[in-house]
Nucleic acid binder design. Sequence first.
DNA 1: CTGAAAGCGCTAACAA
DNA 2: TTGTTAGCGCTTTCAG
Lengths: 363, 363
Amino acid sequence: MRRTTIRDIAAAVGASPATVSKVLTGRGDSLISDTMRQRIRESARELGYSPNLAARALVTGRTYCIALWSETLADYHAAVANALLDVLRPSRYEMVITDVVKHPDWYAYFQRNAPWPVDGIIALDSPQSVEAYLATSAGRNTPVVSIGAYYWEHTDHIGVDLGAGVRQAAHHLAEQGCRRIAHLTCDHGMRPGEPRRLAYEEAMVDLGLEPRLLVTGQSSREDARLTVRDLVGSGQLPDALLCFNDETAIGAYRGLRDLGVRIPDDVALIGCDGIQDTAYFDQPITTIVQPVNELCRSAWQCLQTRLDEPDAPRQSRMLKADLMIRESSLRIGRPVEAAANPITKAARTGEEPRPDHALPQEA
Amino acid sequence: MRRTTIRDIAAAVGASPATVSKVLTGRGDSLISDTMRQRIRESARELGYSPNLAARALVTGRTYCIALWSETLADYHAAVANALLDVLRPSRYEMVITDVVKHPDWYAYFQRNAPWPVDGIIALDSPQSVEAYLATSAGRNTPVVSIGAYYWEHTDHIGVDLGAGVRQAAHHLAEQGCRRIAHLTCDHGMRPGEPRRLAYEEAMVDLGLEPRLLVTGQSSREDARLTVRDLVGSGQLPDALLCFNDETAIGAYRGLRDLGVRIPDDVALIGCDGIQDTAYFDQPITTIVQPVNELCRSAWQCLQTRLDEPDAPRQSRMLKADLMIRESSLRIGRPVEAAANPITKAARTGEEPRPDHALPQEA
DNA sequence: CTGAAAGCGCTAACAA
DNA sequence: TTGTTAGCGCTTTCAG
């Protein structure tokens, strides 16, 4: 059976499609007589009408749909997607997730298939895709906000400065008495200009310590776990691991525990991103917390402004990622910081924790 | 500047829009002269053309876009979304995530705003939305596959039987010597007909044990943690907690550890869903693993079949969720099962684990 | 091999 | 208060 259209409704009530449209969209609603409005509404309900949004989008040029571009939907990226969904909930916008690695040749992709038409794009950690996109005519018409630790600066963007967090982390480890602080990174982390690695190297110079890079293939838990197991076997164990992200840190945690290495006594451990999981380990893992909610709120606000005023000047904002100190890096105790984290506090003192969320990311 | 259309290209090369369309879509490509094809392609590239998919969808009736309906994008649901993205990657389909709780009044919603037009829908754990949707005329035309532990059976569906896993879990706990096995559930888990609770109660009858329901508000980690802390304080500690899901189990893990309760010695712990995190704790958490990849593969296959043959008979399939035994429920040792899990094995024996993923969900 | 014409379902001017 | 008309950008016959 064919899908119901406004013509069907118009025919059923003896009106014109235009009148039906006016009633159903609410635009010009008030100019229509009560009886007509009533009859159209009833008929729509009876026929199970729902509008064809492709047609509507074609004429209005608006889809009320925005895209989240991301390379994956795992872990931190999933948390961002979820937070963005929360931000969008009060609005009438839907979210389409476009898998940006899917399309290595962006030019060919945009020419043929183009991603689903949206009013705007929020591109998470995918500056190259943004760059390619902006070169197309779609890119000149559909605004994009580039967000995250990796962003394209020649368009609206909300960046996150992980470097500051990494430097904080390195100094914190030094204060805890660590001297052989290694950076456990991955192929991705070895790319030129990678902010985490650069910040680590810089901090090590500041501290007068010898940098050491340990590289695992993927930034996956299993890869990190196996890399760390090898490391333990080789006897070349550092006294602290500053990890590329939480996945790597969690894998390292497990790899160390597999072989009985104590955390933080033998090796102090720090992750990055601030995913929820890190808070629940026997030794909760210190991590550099990305301000996920603030990132999504800002991104959406920025995009809305852009939709309202396409010609407004470029907007940009930098957010800070702060160190959240927990057990996994506390060797000599820091009661002040520890007390700020309900989980840490509870585990250490047995006192009643504050009943709020384990990862208070923002004030 | 206006977005480039096929008319612009047609004008630029002195051809008609129809010819441009043929070349750019590849349909009728072969009937066009080489030179013309060449010039059109070049012009498209120069003008940064990308097609307006709303217009294309309007005429072809196809969007090459499917929706994932889910109430959230956290934890297990995020894992499903990610797995579905993987399944879709080789295809030319995009995925829209529609937040189904957003729209409590489905009828009003569909009448006015309707979700983004898609060729098909995969609805995860959202049977009520599916039911409401099928009553609309969109629902009669856009196929939906209902998947997960909660599904709507009067349409194509891929179900997951958690009951079997819960029964396995209860019996496993009894074999481990547990006698006071409580079910830690949440408001959601108390709804009538909830399969996990029913399977638990059934298993307890089989085992001749007294059932005990502990109810935490949300199925969140923090709620579970606080509930368990209260429980420890009250002195009414069971010797096993069979949890509603992994979130609850992880919160319980932390709540028990906060107060020095040993796992599994004092309290054995079992989660449900099989999210990756459970494998990385000091005492890896036994869990009932949902076959996420198989679920997504089946769902997509089912939907493709339906798109090809709209009038094919209803398809359905049930998948099993199996118990993955790990440390958190092993009190008397079960070397055979333990050896099957690389992480468990490694932690117990110090041997080299298989280098595969920590959570082999399917064969 | 190429173009003209029609129309997908809807909205927005403008007429009546 | 309602209807008529035109057209969004594209694809698809069908005619040349």
